[in-house]
């Protein structure tokens, strides 16, 4: 192994924290959804990392292959990817609707309008 065995988890944590930072620190609603996307992909990466077996091949049965990677995390993540797109679509639809109601997609400006309006 060319790098320490926990390297993948570190990358996952870094990506996850970048996603979390985007969600917390940015006021723009589209940017928040992008942040959620970054976060989600990092979780997918975590699961796929767990499913990997050293020396294994993709879990498609064939003669002459002895070691397969674990198919279960792959299945779970397939479901998760589709669900993530569904949530993204719903979130973006809400953003469009908010923009129609408030003429802006910045959180602070919406807050101001709520207070004054």
């Amino acid at each position: 192994m060319p790098f320490p065995g926990l390297f993948n988890y570190w990358i996952v944590v870094i990506l996850m924290m970048i996603g979390l930072y985007i969600v917390i620190a940015h006021g723009n609603l589209v940017k928040k959804i992008i942040g959620i996307n970054v976060f989600q992909v990092s979780v997918f990466l975590l699961y796929i990392t767990i499913g990997k077996v050293a020396g294994g091949s993709a879990p498609i049965l064939d003669q002459g292959i002895e070691v397969y990677s674990n198919p279960l995390p792959h299945v779970l993540i397939l479901t998760a990817i589709v669900v993530s797109v569904a949530t993204t679509a719903l979130g973006l639809a809400l953003v469009v609707r908010i923009r129609n109601a408030f003429q802006t997609i910045e959180e602070d400006e919406i807050d101001q309008q709520e207070k004054t309006g």
Binding site: P59, I60, H74, I77, L78
Partner: peptide
């Protein structure tokens, strides 16, 4: 994902 043997997931992603 392809590197980590998850070809189906890679397709979907």
């Amino acid at each position: 994902y392809v590197v980590m043997d998850a070809v189906d997931v890679a397709f979907t992603e």
